[in-house]
């Protein structure tokens, strides 16, 4: 935090606080100084670091793939196109295996989810203090660079998926069909409220579990990096290197899981019961 030699609690607290800009009841529209001020701002606040990094990484992802798409040729593919095509092929296979319906939306959606989440997870492998320290030199107090360690980011994406689930459910089955699915099963029309409760919970659980799974994995991983950073410097590499290597796997796995579950949920939305 602001003090020169922060305690362990202060250090952790500092690393877990977003750069928040919002409407404070006392200070008005301003950057929050500390976690308490940020939480006092309520909903009318924005995590500038999360959004900025998410956008930067999203544009990076889109840029790389757009460049690949520009160079797309049916002739001999070169380096970048090869890499892009490998990812596209991987996503395409995953979609083909799990998604039975026909939609021009699902595959690009899956690619975006996989690529963007992968990029957002990837910056976690940067040394934990590197970017915050650089920003602190520039006068920015807080900087949390991994967007997926912010529940707002993961929930934002999963709500996007949730909206698509509802959109496709209504598009394929009609509003009546979708409502019927929510209320008339599993126990028939005489237990309609109970059915609605069960199916409603099932429906809401999809985006919540998506968001919490990604957030939980990334947040806990980040926390362990922070704890390792508290160790004496000569012992840090002993733990941070294996943890980082392990996290390469987690990064890809979590991006893949988010993508696969999205495909499965949307596949379910396309199915008639």
């Amino acid at each position: 935090m602001a003090s020169e030699n922060p305690t362990a609690t202060e250090y952790i607290q500092h690393h877990l606080t977003n750069l928040t800009f919002g409407h404070h009841p006392v200070n008005g529209w301003s950057f929050a100084h500390g976690a308490t001020e940020a939480s006092e701002m309520g909903f009318m606040a924005i995590h500038v670091d999360t959004i900025a990094w998410a956008l930067i990484l999203g544009f990076t992802f889109c840029g790389i793939f757009y460049l690949g798409a520009k160079r797309a040729t049916s002739g001999v593919p070169s380096g970048l196109l090869n890499a892009v095509e490998a990812v596209v092929d991987f996503v395409d296979n995953a979609v083909r295996e799990s998604f039975n319906g026909k939609s021009a939306m699902i595959a690009p959606l899956a690619l975006t989810i996989f690529g963007w989440i992968f990029m957002m997870n990837l910056v976690k492998l940067l040394p934990i203090d590197l970017v915050p320290t650089l920003f602190k030199m520039a006068g920015v107090e807080y900087m949390k660079i991994v967007p997926t360690t912010d529940i707002n980011a993961t929930l934002g994406m999963s709500i996007g998926v949730f909206l698509l689930i509802i959109f496709y459910s209504i598009k394929i089955k009609g509003a009546g069909g979708f409502l019927g699915e929510l209320t008339l099963q599993p126990f028939g029309k005489w237990l309609l409220p109970f059915n609605f409760l069960l199916e409603g919970v099932g429906l809401i659980a999809k985006p919540i579990s998506l968001a919490l799974r990604l957030f939980g994995n990334m947040y806990s991983g980040e926390l362990i990096f922070i704890l390792i950073a508290l160790l004496p410097f000569y012992a840090q590499w002993l733990l941070s290197v294996p943890w980082a290597i392990f996290h390469i796997f987690v990064i890809i796995l979590q991006a893949f899981i988010f993508m696969m579950l999205t495909i499965v949920y949307l596949s379910m939305a396309h199915e008639h019961h």
């Binding site: 924005i46 956008l55 999203g58 992802f61 798409a69 939306m105 595959a107 690009p108």
Partner: peptide, 23 residues
């Protein structure tokens, strides 16, 4: 907070971009 909304909009934009120009 509003980050959620921002992320949602960014998400939809990126999906649209991918669907239009990449895939």
């Amino acid at each position: 907070n509003l980050t959620l909304v921002g992320q949602l909009i960014a998400f939809l934009l990126f999906v649209w971009f991918c669907m239009k120009f990449v895939w």
